[in-house]
Design a protein around this nucleic acid. Structure first.
Lengths: 342, 342
DNA sequence: AATTAGCACTCGATTAAAGTGAGTGCTAAT
DNA sequence: ATTAGCACTCACTTTAATCGAGTGCTAATT
């Protein structure tokens, strides 16, 4: 069942108008505001049919109509035309990203900040759990007589450093020796894979430091446990107050409460393994609280392993054109950066 | 002008009741609910005088009365008796903090999480700018052929690591040599103090690596610039929806918007250089938007240098007794931890 | 002299009723 | 097939009426 050219035109006008005004749109407004070449009465008839087909919804008998999730889906898939960001804006973006690139862990976070500024919606940055990350390098750094700093570099660029109070007083040369041994045995492994056997092997090899080795490895296990917590960052959360759909305190509250549920956010962002950019609209989201929201999400990888997601979340009445354009741009720039640096 | 015993008793009852119910309290409720030994009429007369003295406010002629900031101040300074946390709770807290202690940077953040959970208010963790931090140790770690990891340890326990793409291919021994040189010259200095002269000295000393040395130092300058941004973390922001005073969308919005103003938050938390615990009530805060809020703030130091602040923020009608008790406990535990580890 | 009971009064909050207007569906004319 | 016309619907706004917790004042009581 395909929609006629005219129905599409009307539907597009309705969606555009509703995205702009957040008010249910009626036939009269439509015929006056948009040049559709037919009268209000005709539009009324077409609207009735669009409603039958599930593209429009009426809040009550005597109100204008509002696009359904199905309509937004059609809009995103077919009607919308993505704009290209101005070149200046593009280059400013690139500049800013470059500057923030020193610390990999913060890249997503900073990107989220730009994203919420550019789109005026709320943005989410989520770093993937590092469960399956492999050790790339491990370094022991002396801090003072009592303590060392353990620096752990993963293959996805994640760097984790933690203080460890070590009983013995080890000089830098000794530490280097232990570092070398650890690197030799652990490189390319997942930390959780490190078995008792491997530990014993190492202890045998450097018998005089067997206590230190044990301490360090116990410590690493704990650190990894900590790292496995989901790391979610938000920007522009108060932007939702700009949207009439959240103007009621209960809605606003439940939106903000939703953001605090890390598990839920994680599931919203990671759903199917889809390439590039994903738009999920309203009831397409499996959680009740998210069914009046839409998300536009992109996924980032290093070495073909997902390192995180970036997402824009807002009401289903979202300016998809704007958001998608901006995210496509950002996606491109970030991917370039990641490719060049990893 | 001192308040009579009876006035104090009445005032205390009013504050207690208002903190509990958030409703203006009238003379009748008061005489019924609290055993004050006098009739409602007498209370009415006393209340009228308390209002004259600025301890109570009336929203309109025929409403009950509400404590003023002045009343809260009196309450916090004289009437309130801080409870002691149950021993079990105390030990659970200690346990949790210990576990999160691996990374110094995250300690404040995690503390804030506990704080908002325990108090049911919003909590703020703020790390001090590191402008004046001194370099404790600096380590160059090889990552692969092209890049090294620069690990910077400050005397306040802050650790910062950043990737640096370095042109030359340096083997670990060479890197160690440069590390040593850098440490020798830079230890105990503030990064911003590192002058061109120092750099030239080092370059002369290790002439063959002069390019690497320059690169690293340029890089450090940039990193420090980045670190100087204020780092603020919140927990339990949606708790404010539990308070009737923020039940109106405009108030809730402006509260949340206030939190997003990092500069403002910084000024709220750092005001006077006061030891221990500080309570600032309503209009005592210099910013308009914060004048309906109270903050309870503690400051943390390492080596007598401030490393950060922890704060609980909520309506002036805050359960000061609860919040202050909890914060005193946490403060003690954290200080113990910091003393033992730094 | 201090305390208390009694009472008229105030004023925000709640409820009820009336009025408004944008939008619809249907019918008949074009 | 399209459009003008019209009666009808229903959320939203406005106005009026009522309610009730709380006060201040006065006169009686301790």
């Amino acid at each position: 069942m395909k929609l006629s050219e005219r129905k599409l035109k009307i539907l597009q006008a309705i969606i555009t108008d509703y995205i702009e005004t957040a008010e249910p749109v009626g036939s009269r407004t439509l015929s006056r505001k948009y040049d559709l070449g037919v009268s209000a009465a005709t539009i009324r008839n077409e609207m009735a049919e669009l409603e039958e087909d599930g593209y429009l919804k009426q809040l009550h008998t005597s109100s204008g109509r509002v696009p359904s999730d199905k309509a937004y889906r059609l809009y995103v898939d077919q009607l919308m035309e993505s704009r290209i960001l101005a070149k200046i804006q593009r280059e400013a973006l690139r500049e800013s990203l470059m500057q923030k690139f020193h610390e990999v862990q913060n890249l997503l976070k900073h990107s989220a900040e730009y994203l919420s500024q550019l789109t005026d919606y709320t943005s989410i940055a989520m770093a993937e759990k590092t469960k399956e990350n492999r050790i790339k390098h491990l370094q022991l750094v002396p801090v003072d007589e009592e303590r060392i700093l353990v620096v752990l570099i993963m293959d996805t660029g994640l760097v984790k450093n933690t203080l460890l109070r070590i009983g013995e007083n080890l000089d830098p040369r000794e530490l280097q020796k232990i570092s070398n041994l650890l690197n030799h045995h652990l490189q390319g492994m997942e930390i959780r894979q490190v078995s008792q056997l491997v530990i014993e092997n190492m202890q045998r090899e450097l018998y005089e430091y067997r206590r230190a080795i044990e301490l360090i490895l116990m410590h690493l296990q704990e650190v990894v446990k900590e790292v496995e917590q989901i790391d979610v960052f938000f920007s522009g959360t108060t932007n939702i107050f700009n949207f009439p759909e959240f103007n009621d305190i209960v809605k606003a509250r439940s939106f903000l409460a939703m953001l605090e549920e890390k598990e839920l956010i994680k599931n919203l962002l990671t759903l199917p393994d889809q390439e590039g950019l994903r738009v999920s609209i309203g009831r397409e989201n499996l959680y009740d609280i998210a069914q009046e929201c839409s998300l536009v999400t992109t996924t980032y990888k290093i070495n073909n392993r997902t390192i995180g997601h970036l997402s824009v979340i807002g009401p289903t009445r979202m300016d998809y054109t704007k958001v998608v354009s901006i995210m496509l741009q950002l996606n491109k720039q970030l991917n370039d950066l990641l490719r060049d640096n990893y």
